[in-house]
């Protein structure tokens, strides 16, 4: 039931995004587009500009939500979000270095992705050095590495010229205006979704705690390793497309849980749909509210996200998050 509603929401958000903007288009025109012989300028705009951006927004929202679900179980911490273990910090440091050096968009992507990978490896190696894996160790390492990236980012910001700082800030706040999703990210989201569904029963059991999960037949160590890698790579691919879009990965999973979807078999697809729709909707607003001025989408996600989260929290007072 929830899944059906969320699918409808996803379709609605995509239509809303395609129809809103400086060039107006009616729903009728849009739906007839595939059958119209000659393509109008409006339709060209939609197809060439709005559609890729909308798809990218949905993809990023879905990737971040899925990563958020995984991080929250992995760290057994409701405050965990996709960025908590420093992946976004590494990507941001990479991206900002590229902007600082005036590189092309291609190299910006490569640099951001390399930064994210470096961060994933760094945290993983440090967290596992010598001792057995523990949640606290992983969390602490992630937070420390994030802080390190933060310092590097601040250094780049303070030493850059005013023009570059502007684009750096957009990147840091999360911005979809330049975003195009590559086939890698489609594949990753689908793989993540499939993998997540295959593991969903084990994830349910893992919420009982490591030892109990182990005695119920879950290979906890292997599962944790898989979850860490999956969440990191999902986050990295989202961050490379759109920068550090905050809030989606934290609240989409919680919103679904509070609506009653605690079973990961439903939580995972629901969170992907909700996160995707939410980001599509937020991005439509980001480019239209102050048009022609565009806002970073991260600002909008927080502005919408905070009040709606409080609303959900109030309405689900009987169930703790």
């Amino acid at each position: 039931m929830l899944l059906l509603l969320l699918t409808l929401l996803a379709i609605a958000s995509v239509l809303f995004s395609l129809l809103s903007g400086s060039v107006t288009l009616s729903l009728h025109d849009l739906l007839n587009a595939p059958f119209a012989g000659e393509e109008s300028l409006q339709l060209q705009i939609v197809r060439e500009i709005r559609l890729p951006r909308t798809v990218a927004a949905f993809l990023v929202g879905g990737l971040l939500s899925l990563s958020g679900v995984i991080m929250q179980i992995l760290l057994r911490n409701p405050l965990a979000d996709p960025f908590i273990l420093g992946v976004s910090g590494g990507a941001a440091a990479g991206a900002l270095t590229a902007i600082f050096l005036g590189s092309s968009v291609f190299w910006l992507y490569q640099s951001a992705f390399s930064g994210a990978l470096l961060s994933i490896l760094l945290v993983f190696t440090l967290a596992n050095a010598g001792k057995r894996w523990s949640v606290t160790r992983l969390l602490l390492t992630g937070v420390v590495v994030s802080a390190g990236w933060g310092a590097l980012i601040n250094l780049l910001l303070t030493t850059s010229s005013e023009n570059t700082v502007q684009s750096m800030l957009f990147w840091l706040m999360g911005d979809l205006s330049q975003s195009r999703a590559s086939w890698h990210s489609y594949a990753l989201l689908l793989a993540g979704l499939g993998g997540g569904l295959a593991l969903s029963r084990a994830l349910n059991v893992l919420t009982l705690g490591d030892q109990n999960a182990q005695t119920l037949g879950v290979n906890v160590e292997a599962l944790r390793f898989t979850l860490y890698l999956a969440a990191s790579v999902l986050t990295a691919s989202a961050v490379v497309i759109a920068g550090s879009v905050g809030f989606v990965g934290l609240i989409a999973p919680h919103a679904i849980r509070m609506l009653g979807g605690r079973d990961h078999r439903y939580l995972i697809p629901s969170a992907v749909l909700l996160g995707g729709s939410f980001l599509v909707f937020a991005d439509s607003l980001a480019r239209t509210v102050l048009a022609p001025q565009q806002l970073p989408v991260g600002v909008v996600t927080a502005l919408i996200g905070v009040p709606s989260f409080i609303l959900i929290l109030r309405n689900s007072a009987t169930q703790s998050p």
């Binding site: 919420t207 009982l208 605690r262 703790s320 998050p321």
Partner: peptide, 11 residues
């Protein structure tokens, strides 16, 4: 049991 949100039946 750790108090992750779940019902008695789900647990």
């Amino acid at each position: 049991l750790p108090a992750m949100p779940k019902t008695v039946f789900e647990t």
